[in-house]
């Protein structure tokens, strides 16, 4: 796989803080607000939900009422309580999993990218890491997640671990590629000539310049992970009853879509609004940090 090293943007130490630039774009603000809202529900749904997610309260599908603001589902469970909690697992799993993936991926990526330019041994380490990421990325994400679910199970911690494993190689690639570009800059050469230790250069010179890319990466992988986790439950391989999950809720409600479309539309909107929120935020972040589309998409 060919690595394109050209056309990198100058690392910025600009006058505006990048966050300030994010906030100036209306789309990014909408995105961040949506994400914030979802995070709020994910964290506090159990406290705010009017009913338990599994309690059977009516004799089946009922329309909205004073007692149940969004009605009850096909077996009489409060729909609002379930909808509020429906993104919880996917979002929490994605956030923790992708964080881990990014920490591990950044470490490996910097090591591979920087050492790869320093002599024969470094080149070998770089090659090894890169071929391994190639191999892992050759197995389609959803398939890799699915087989790891076989191994680790579908508890929250195991799903987080799985997301961490699956999203590490992508992070390695992107970070490595940017590291190579940064390493070519004069201020790194200068540090090397000053006789700084490799550790210092990695931590103090290179890492700070990766912050923007890492932020964008984090958001992008999160949106991908949320989609994959909900696809997993849609396929019946992920979160199982009675835990609510938007993917599963869409799947179940498809059976009554022609008479009760809301039961499909609401979880679909909830899921899409989360992904749209993240992606809007990604766009804003990418622009603010001057991250090129082609770089993050790879």
């Amino acid at each position: 796989m060919v690595t394109d090293v050209q056309n990198l943007s100058q690392p910025r130490e600009g006058s505006f803080s990048p966050l300030a630039r994010v906030v100036r774009s209306p789309l990014s603000v909408i995105g961040l607000l949506l994400v914030g809202l979802h995070l709020f529900f994910a964290l506090f749904a159990p406290l705010m939900a009017p009913y338990s997610i599994s309690a059977i309260l009516t004799d089946g599908l009922t329309p909205p009422s004073d007692l149940h603001w969004l009605g009850t589902d096909q077996i009489g469970r409060d729909y609002m309580s379930r909808l509020m909690a429906g993104g919880r697992v996917a979002l929490l799993v994605s956030l923790t999993g992708v964080s881990v993936a990014l920490v591990v991926g950044t470490t490996l990526g910097i090591v591979a990218g920087y050492l790869g330019g320093l002599g024969h041994l470094g080149r070998m380490v770089d090659d090894l890491i890169m071929r391994l990421t190639d191999a892992m990325m050759a197995v389609p994400e959803l398939l890799l997640i699915a087989i790891l679910v076989l191994t680790f199970g579908k508890e929250i911690w195991s799903l987080s671990l799985i997301v961490a494993i699956v999203y590490t190689p992508g992070a390695v690639r992107v970070i490595r590629s940017r590291t190579i570009s940064i390493a070519a800059f004069d201020f790194i050469r200068a540090a090397e000539l000053r006789g700084e230790k490799t550790g210092f250069i990695l931590m103090r010179e290179i890492t700070p310049n990766l912050r923007g890319l890492m932020a964008v990466e984090f958001a992008m992988r999160c949106s991908s992970a949320v989609l994959k986790i909900s696809a997993l439950s849609f396929l019946g391989l992920g979160i199982s009853q009675p835990t609510p999950d938007w993917g599963l809720m869409v799947q179940e409600a498809m059976t009554v879509v022609f008479t009760d479309p809301w039961f499909v539309i609401l979880p679909a909107i909830a899921l899409s609004s989360l992904i749209i929120g993240i992606n809007f935020a990604v766009d804003g972040l990418a622009r603010a940090y001057g991250v090129v589309g082609a770089e993050t998409a790879a």
Binding site: S54, A55, I56, Q74, I75, Q241, P242, E252
Partner: peptide, 8 residues
Amino acid sequence: RLWPIVSE
């Protein structure tokens, strides 16, 4: 839909 009622 039936088995969640049993569990519950």
